[in-house]
Amino acid sequence: MTTYIVSNLYIYPIKSLGGISLQEAQVQERGLQHDRRWMLVDEKGGFLSQRKFAQMALLQVKLQPNGLLVSHKQGLLEPLLIPFEQAEGKEVSVTIWDDTCTAREVNGEVTMWFSKALGMFARLVYMPENTRRIVDPTYAFEEEVVSFADAYPFLTIGQEALNNLNTKLAKPVPMNRFRPNIVFTGGQPHDEDLWDTFTIGEVNFRAAKPCARCVLTTVDQQTGIKGEEPLRTLATYRTQNNKVLFGQNLVHEGNGKIKVGDQVQVQLWK
Rank of each mutant, 00 (worst) to 15 (best):
V6T: 14
S7R: 04
I11H: 13
I20T: 03
I20W: 01
V27H: 05
E29L: 12
G31R: 14
D42S: 05
K52H: 10
A54F: 02
M56P: 01
M56K: 08
V61Y: 01
K62E: 15
L63Q: 03
P65L: 01
N66W: 06
L69K: 05
L69Y: 01
H72W: 03
G75D: 11
P79K: 10
I82C: 04
P83F: 11
E85C: 05
E85S: 08
E88K: 13
E88R: 08
V92A: 03
T100L: 12
C101N: 07
R104S: 03
E105C: 02
G108D: 14
M112H: 00
W113R: 04
K116F: 00
M120W: 02
F121E: 04
F121R: 00
R123I: 03
R123V: 00
V125Y: 01
Y126I: 02
P128C: 02
R133Q: 09
V135W: 09
P137G: 12
T138Q: 14
T138D: 13
F141H: 07
E142S: 15
E143I: 02
E144D: 08
E144W: 12
V145L: 11
F148T: 08
G158A: 07
L162D: 03
N163V: 01
L165Q: 09
N166C: 03
T167V: 01
L169W: 12
K171T: 14
P172N: 07
V173P: 04
M175T: 06
F178V: 09
F178E: 13
P180K: 02
N181C: 10
N181E: 05
V183S: 12
V183H: 01
G186H: 07
D191A: 07
D193K: 04
L194I: 05
T197Y: 15
F198L: 09
T199I: 15
T199A: 12
V203C: 06
V203R: 08
N204Q: 15
A207T: 15
P210W: 05
C211F: 11
C211I: 05
R213H: 11
R213T: 10
V215R: 15
V215Q: 13
V215N: 11
T217G: 13
T218K: 07
G224V: 11
I225A: 06
G227V: 12
P230M: 08
L231K: 15
R232C: 03
R232S: 14
T233C: 14
L234F: 06
Q240G: 00
K243D: 08
F246R: 07
F246M: 10
E253I: 04
E253M: 05
G261D: 08
Q265E: 10
Q267T: 06
Q267K: 07
